[in-house]
Design a protein around this nucleic acid. Structure first.
Lengths: 217, 217, 217, 217
DNA sequence: GATGAATGAGGCTTCATTCAT
DNA sequence: GATGAATGAAGCCTCATTCAT
């Protein structure tokens, strides 16, 4: 039955998410932020639609299902949103520095400093990603951003090693350690009331500066 | 990993085994091990009583409720069991070395090496602890073990700083970073098939050796 | 299939088309055809407004509610549309034959042959009617068409029995059997890829010819 | 973790459904009968767990989920139960007759007569099977019994044709028609209060006797 | 000690329908 | 006329826990 115009319309709806209404975009953002709030505060396990809906001031969980294809879709959006915010915060702070050492320091300090500006964002994302399993079908989509960011970092470290700025070490292990240390520190910052995130950021930066720089500094 | 000070929790189970019959102890151990297996393989979220009971070869979940006061109780026992195993594995490997540097190295290598001997234990514990929240009533009991172990490590680092063996840094941040790096590496080891845990352990030990030692080494 | 007496229902739609604008009529037809498509392909249970709207290339289900008083109304229209199409297909093929035997044969063959021309129509209607229950408020409106068509057939059979062309039997049972056999055959035709509907139509016609004709043929 | 005894126990639970408790068997039967009742009375679409639970006098739908693996499992059991009852009713009535004609007649009369003894059973089964789609994963399991029964009938007809007892016709079309006619008649019997099922059974038997027997009877 | 039946809350999702724009 | 956001009921299912046996 008029399959031609049918598929034409579907194409638009499916392949162009930018065609979203203003209202829809606002609602999605509202729900994503409520999800970040809830997950950061109470953990992924408590991040039910019911609780997120309550946090967002919605009348029912059906509302969330209406705006998102499913829980995976919502979680994917949470990760995307946090990635976006983190990228926007960290990248410029890195780019105003030169040299691998200075840039690594900037990366770490900015990442931890993000906890001051958006205290809920990173903890929420960490919790979401921690719940992914290898067999999870949504794993690939969610980790795409994160993994490729890690790959970039690994590559940068290799260059700094070739230039002699960094000592010899396994860059993958180092990147894993840095990411883990940042995440743990940010999580602590979110939970311990008087935690001095800026100071901890500087400490972490020192730590990995010592860990990476070559002997003849 | 330092089980010395988690005595309050373990007292009943360890120091007064006469309070429980042999059969009961065996059943509890069987269930705890099944829980470790399931949580390591499928994640905390999938660690329902139903699945643990199946893994343990039990015919119903009632059995678990019968032997444990509740899910919190079981999880507490999982953490305690992993702590016990880790302690037994790591401590002797540390004690045969002398000096803060060598001991830190031994601690890190042994912790990562544990993943070879008991691949499911640490990942399971990490998953359980990641699910604790501040408002969780079982938080205190569960974190007692872990937190006090961290306190001990912090204190040791302070001593090594006083003796000049370690440079000046915030020991809490360092301990957090070390713990996080170990956990992340162990988790990777559990998921990536060809991962060389021993090599990664040495890398991590190098990393934190560079990060902690004083300049005039 | 005899639409002659379903006038009450169709009066508005057919005899007073001026009551609806052209656009409205087109939209309704578009939706009804989408509904037929969906129900034939996926079954009544999957025939939700959402799916029908997607099939029709509409952007929301509100459109359907706007044009139809409710789901019952849409389903009634599906039945009416299929009845209309079937009537237009079957009636002329019957009328060019004479005698009860030839006409019965024409009716059966045409009904099954309809599956070639409109493969989705009859299956959709069968599915819709199968979902009606005695207590269903929309039952009367929907079955009016079909039941009265059956009444006409029963009456014709009685005549053929009086004229000696058909043997003695209960015409209601016979009509029920014929209808059921046609429906089952058409349904099979819609599902089994290589099914030869024309051959099956001839077989069915033979079957009921043997079943109805008087002994002294 | 004791994988040997584990798998041993699971084997029993999974591969030996006969190991079911008496209580469990009773509950399953109770639920299946409630499902038959509801589906026959209100249709497949209204056969929700909630309604079936109410009919069975259960406190919640969780009860049904506890005893059945899912809705598919329950529906499969409904079909199996009706098949069992129908087989037990029809087969002996067929076997006391000899000759293809007499047996066909016995089959039809017994099938329709079943509506007197178990008025809800066949209608419920028909409704369940009508809702299966080709892509339904449970389709194969459910249709196994029914399809193979049809195959047996087809084979018997071929034999009767070879022996000259039946005329030449396409046995598959005939079997489809007989099944459809029986189902439609039984459905009518369940809905029309004063319907004389026995008489209709005799009529149907006559109908298909005329339709199948060879000319030189 | 052990079993497994029962419970009721809560999970996510789909649905038909309404209504402001 | 048309849109799509919003609603709230109902759907199936899983869960931890309790209790009679």
């Amino acid at each position: 039955m008029e399959a031609r115009s049918d598929s034409a319309e579907q194409e638009e709806a499916v392949k162009r998410p930018s065609r979203r209404t203003f209202t829809e975009a606002a609602r999605r953002a509202q729900i994503v932020n409520a999800a970040i709030e809830v997950i950061a505060d109470a953990g992924y396990a408590k991040g039910s639609f019911a609780r997120i809906a309550r946090e967002a001031g919605l009348s029912s969980t059906g509302m969330i299902s209406y705006h998102f294809a499913g829980k995976d879709d919502l979680m994917r959006e949470v990760v995307a949103e946090v990635s976006r915010v983190a990228e926007a915060y960290v990248r410029p702070r890195m780019e105003e520095r030169t040299g691998a050492r200075a840039r690594l320091r900037a990366f770490i300090e900015a990442s931890v400093g993000l906890a001051g500006a958006y205290p809920k964002h990173l903890p929420a994302m960490i919790d979401v990603l921690a719940h992914l399993r290898d067999d999870d079908p949504s794993r690939h989509g969610l980790l795409g951003t994160v993994d490729s960011a890690a790959d970039v970092q690994v590559e940068r470290m290799r260059e700094a090693q070739r230039s002699g700025e960094f000592r010899e070490f396994d860059p993958r292990v180092m990147v894993t350690a840095i990411r883990a240390a940042i995440d743990a520190t940010v999580t602590r910052a979110g939970r311990e009331p008087g935690f001095d995130a800026a100071a901890a950021g500087r400490e972490l930066a020192d730590l990995f500066d010592h860990a990476t720089r070559s002997a003849e500094r």
